[in-house]
Every structure is written in C-alpha cells, then in structure tokens.
Write a protein that binds this DNA or RNA. Sequence first.
RNA 1: ACGCGGCU
Length: 248
Amino acid sequence: PKALSTCLNLLLDSNRVDLARKLLLHAKRDLTRKPNVCVFNILVKYHCKNGDLDSAFEIVEEMRNSEFSYPNLVTYSTLMDGLCRNGRVKEAFDLFEEMVSRDHIVPDPLTYNVLINGFCRGGKPDRARNVIQFMKSNGCYPNVYNYSALVDGLCKVGKLEDAKGVLAEIKGSGLKPDAVTYTSLINFLCRNGKSDEAIELLEEMKENGCQADSVTFNVLLGGLCREGKFEEALDMVEKLPQQGVYLN
RNA sequence: ACGCGGCU
C-alpha cells in the first residue's frame, strides 16, 4: 500500500488519471494489496482538487463500507478543505462536528486551520479569530500556521494594525513568527506603496532570527519596482546570493 | 505513503 500511495500520487500529479485508475483496480483485486486509508485519502484529495466534492464524498462512503479502512482525521481535514476552497465553509464546519460526534475523532491544529483559512478566504477574519478561540477552548493550542493564516486574512482585508497585533500575540505566546507570517505583512505593505515600511519589517524579521526566503524577496522586489525604485531593487537582487536566497 | 498558512 505504501508503494501504491506513492505511485498514485505521482500519476495523479502528472495527470495520468487513466493509469492511476488501472493501478487502483489491480490493487483492489489483489488481496495482499488492499487500498488502505492513505490510498483512499489520496483519492479524496484528488477529487477535492478538481472541485468534484460529490466524488470525494463517494470515496468516503466506500471507506466506510470497506473492511480495510475508515475515514480518519486526514480524510476529514481533506474534505473540509475541499469544501472551504469552494466557498462552502458552513458545510465544512458541519462536517467538523460530524467528525467529532459520529467518529469521535479529535481535531488537531491543522484541522482547525482549514476552517481558519476558509473564513479568511471569504474575507471574514473575525470568524477566523473565533476559530482560534474555539480551538483553545477545546484544549488545542494554535501553532504558527494558525496565526499566520489569521495574519494573512487580516492583511487581505486591509486590517494591518490588527495583523500586527496578532504578530505580537504570536511572540507573546512563545511561538516564533516565520517567513510566511512576515511575508503576508510585507505583501500588504508592498501592494499599498509602502515598500519603505516593508523593508523595515524585513529588518525586524532578521533581528528576530527569521530568514527571509525567495517569496519574501519576490514580494519586496515587486513592491520596489511598482514604486519605480529600480536601483534599490537591483541592489537587493545582487545581495541575494550572500543570504543563500535564489529566486525561482 | 495521505491533510493546512505567504508571491505567481
């Protein structure tokens, strides 16, 4: 089943769906190679990626009927993410509750993050904040992914000060903001003609021991160029190799 | 071997 999962992922990633189907049919016939949870989860994810949630739910039904696998936390998180990416956050939350009550599965920070991102994509970071409150009340501690998602959600609706507040909250809770956290803020500044403030943040992240990566610089370079600061941009590009950063 | 956050 391990080899099967790996092969399926490779085939689906390269869009060889026909071959993936054949492979799966063979595996189902072979008693020693029964598809396990991981294999099913890969299929669920594949259908979600195509926005075909009906098929994804069919796979889950198949899992429930199978002797060899049953929906687990990954299955639910994947499905919830598929729903959220299609704007169906309410249903994702219903599914979350079903997961807990019907299958007695305990959500982890990643599961909550799917909901946080669902709300943020919908331009409702306040709801996302409620999810963080909710997970805490369930004894689940938010990680940097959770907070970064919220920071980005706040930036996307222009609430820079609130986003900075969350940055402080991250530090206060003993977590370390990472390049993703900072890049969301830098991105907002760059898109609003504030590359100078963005560069201040870049300095701040360095002081906090956080290494900027290629996405951070991509964003910064875009901001500088948009403001016509081409010399500064070139200067920045020239200094990238010394920082071990290579643009893609 | 399977699920979540930043640019495109």
